[in-house]
Simulated assay, not measured.
Amino acid sequence: MAKSGVLQYAVQLDSVTKKYRSGRNEVHALRGITAAFPTGSFTAVMGPSGSGKSTFLNCVAGLDHPTSGHILLGGTELSGRTEAQLTEFRRDRIGFVFQAYNLLSALTVEDNVTMPLRLADAPVDHQHLSFVLSAVGLAEHRTRRPNQLSGGQQQRVAIARALITRPDLVCADEPTGALDSRTGRQVLALLRQVVDEMGQTVLMVTHDPVAAAQADTVVFLADGQLAGELRAPTPEQVAERMTRLGEA
């Protein structure tokens, strides 16, 4: 079920800056970021604390407005859109996976997964729903509620919810941060699977070199600027690069 006729790049940033006030100081969270992420790729974003990782992800996902520059997601310019337009855009075209699962305890797995469609007053494609639930290993748990699931299973529900709208981009912010190492590896393998088998594009912020090594490419940020990248990374290469960035 990989997409056909898609654009070469799911996300493009052109000279993106982000400034904000902190007391009397002006903080430059992003400094002229220019980058492009291919459709159907898995990219990890890493950097020391305060490097701009969260601001970067928030701007790409339309959760925050860049001060200047341009961001295209799925070929659509995000700049200049109203909050209402951005809210609709995020709901329809971006999937989110956070450290916290953000599931509604009163709803079943199936109802949690289809929540974005119901909020958009859109019909549920039951064939696609079954496909997504099977892909994340939840086909037999669709009528269960979150408190009947393990932490790893709850994160799988969150990933299924992110996939149900066939988004242009899945944004994952520390998706294994609340999981033990074994369960975390399973969730990372699932993210790898949705890229390889479903043609999704995943952009993941993480501090974990082992998690980052699941990605095709690791992009490093430092002081709000791009500070290099690694393709086909190993955990050791990622850790060594992070050590150098921390020393710098």
Rank of each mutant, 00 (worst) to 15 (best):
M1V: 14
S4D: 04
G5L: 05
G5S: 12
V11K: 11
V11G: 13
Q12S: 15
D14C: 09
D14N: 14
V16T: 12
T17S: 06
K18G: 03
K19Q: 09
R21A: 11
R21T: 03
G23A: 09
G23Y: 05
E26Y: 00
V27Y: 11
R31F: 04
T34W: 10
T34V: 15
T34D: 14
A35W: 13
A35T: 13
P38S: 08
P38A: 06
F42H: 05
V45Y: 11
V45F: 12
M46P: 00
G47R: 11
P48S: 10
G52W: 08
K53W: 13
T55K: 07
L57G: 12
L57P: 03
L57W: 10
N58E: 14
G62D: 09
G62L: 03
H65K: 06
S68W: 04
G69I: 13
G69T: 14
I71R: 04
L73K: 04
L73I: 10
E77W: 12
E77G: 05
G80D: 04
G80P: 02
R81F: 12
T82I: 11
T82L: 06
E83Y: 10
A84S: 13
T87L: 04
R91M: 14
R93M: 13
R93Y: 15
V97R: 00
V97I: 13
A100H: 10
Y101T: 04
Y101R: 01
N102S: 06
E110G: 03
D111H: 07
N112F: 01
M115Q: 02
P116H: 00
L117D: 07
R118Q: 14
R118N: 14
A120Y: 06
P123S: 15
D125Q: 06
H126P: 00
Q127K: 12
L129V: 13
G137V: 02
G137E: 05
H141I: 00
H141D: 07
R145D: 01
N147C: 03
N147Q: 09
Q154S: 01
V157T: 10
A160E: 06
A160R: 02
A162V: 08
V170L: 09
L179Y: 11
T183S: 08
T183A: 10
T183G: 04
G184I: 04
Q186P: 00
L190G: 04
L191G: 05
L191E: 15
R192A: 15
Q193Y: 12
M198A: 15
Q200Y: 12
T201R: 01
M204R: 09
T206V: 07
D208P: 02
D208Q: 01
P209K: 01
V210E: 15
T217M: 07
V218M: 01
V218T: 05
F220D: 01
D223L: 03
G224M: 04
L226A: 11
L226V: 11
L226D: 11
L226S: 08
E229I: 05
L230R: 03
R231T: 10
T234I: 11
P235F: 09
R241H: 15
T243A: 12
T243R: 08
